[in-house]
Amino acid sequence: MNQIVLAVIAYAVQRDIDAAKLCQLAGINLTALKKTDAPPVTQQQLDALWLHGTQLSGDPLFGLHFAASVQPAALGVVGQIVQTSATVGEALTHAVALARQLTEQCRMEIARNSKNFTVRFMPATGDVNAPTAAFRTLVELFMVITIHEVSGLMLAKIAPLTVRLPYNVPDVAAYEQIFRCRPTKRAGEYALVFDAHYWDEPILTANYELQTMLLKKVAAMTQQEPAKTVNNLQTRVYNYLLANSYLGIISLEEMAANFNLSPRSLQRKLKEEGVKYQEIADAVRKSLALYYISSGSYQLKDISYMLGYNELSAFTRAFRRWTGSSPLQYQSL
């Protein structure tokens, strides 16, 4: 649970929330929390963290937007899952067992038939139909992470067949965008339903290595590019895209939601700074592409998928536009 709390605080900082103020309001000692032997955060502190994060950001969907942006590797379980799994089904089965490393408040189970498989999320105690705000946010977090990781294991954007929640969501369009499927209300159930053919799909273990390399790249770029510490909107968007570019670059609509703006308002504010969202996204893609290719360790098709291109040809055209040469030509330099 402490890993989740640290990730929430890091996300809050990206949203221009003062970490010290947030921790003070939530009754959390940040210095102590960073220690490996730190005592677990209490339920009261977690409830306060979500509450004050929502208030300080001015975003009623603060928790959901955090779920959409979180890097599962930062929670410390993805590597264990990948290293012990050959297929998506095995990875999910291991994830069920490892979930308790993150929290004791929620447990998972999987049910299968010939047409689909269902991943259910249940409270360890309490009524699933009357969840606290903190538990509701926690389960939504695990559900979004599951969707992203099924995609990440296959390097493809996978959407569930069905998303079930025991309540009516406050913003259907926002939930549909993040869950990749319009949620339906069903009493007593938090569940994701996927097509059965994904179960036996082999996972691409290189994806975890790419993600690890990306996290190192983010840290390196923070040190190497002091100009990027300027606190204007385009810099914040650039840094957000870079830090959350696992499985591609998010859309303008998703970025606007994470900054609690409408897409039109985000475009207008960026225009006032003399830049377009697509230009910032391309700058991040170019930076990551050059880094990945220079490493010499990964196939071009994997790099193109990581940067959000469905076809290698599309990545090649973009790379030629950025550099004047093809990825293959750049590799041979």
Rank of each mutant, 00 (worst) to 15 (best):
S304L: 04
A32N: 10
Y167W: 00
A256R: 07
N244D: 04
D302S: 09
V13K: 04
L270E: 02
S294G: 14
A130G: 02
G126T: 14
Y309P: 02
Q44T: 07
L261F: 03
R236L: 09
P40V: 08
V193R: 11
L210M: 11
T212E: 15
E272S: 11
N116T: 15
P72R: 10
G152Q: 05
V5G: 00
F179C: 05
R15Y: 00
P202A: 12
V144R: 06
L161Y: 04
L300Y: 03
A159F: 03
L75F: 04
D47F: 04
Y198V: 10
N239V: 00
E225M: 15
S69P: 11
V193T: 13
E149L: 13
P160I: 11
L155V: 06
A10K: 13
N239D: 05
Y305L: 13
L141G: 01
V144M: 06
V119L: 13
S295G: 12
N29H: 09
Q267H: 02
F194M: 07
R100T: 10
P166R: 02
V275Y: 01
L288I: 13
A7P: 01
H94M: 08
N239Y: 01
K276C: 00
R107L: 08
W199Y: 15
Y190E: 08
V13E: 03
T42G: 11
V82H: 09
N207G: 14
G63E: 12
P40F: 04
A97P: 06
V237N: 01
P170I: 03
L300D: 06
A99K: 07
L138T: 12
K157L: 10
Q71V: 05
A97N: 15
T84R: 11
L252H: 06
V78G: 07
L307F: 09
T184S: 03
Y240G: 03
T42H: 09
A156I: 01
D195N: 15
G89S: 12
L270F: 02
Q211F: 03
K35G: 04
K185T: 10
F319T: 09
M255K: 03
G248Q: 03
T137A: 11
A227L: 07
V150D: 03
T132H: 07
T146N: 13
Q329M: 10
Q83C: 09
Y11D: 05
E254P: 08
I110K: 13
R285V: 05
K34V: 02
Y298H: 14
A281T: 07
R136K: 13
L6H: 06
Q331G: 10
V8M: 04
L64C: 04
S69A: 14
P60G: 02
K276P: 01
A95N: 12
Q278F: 07
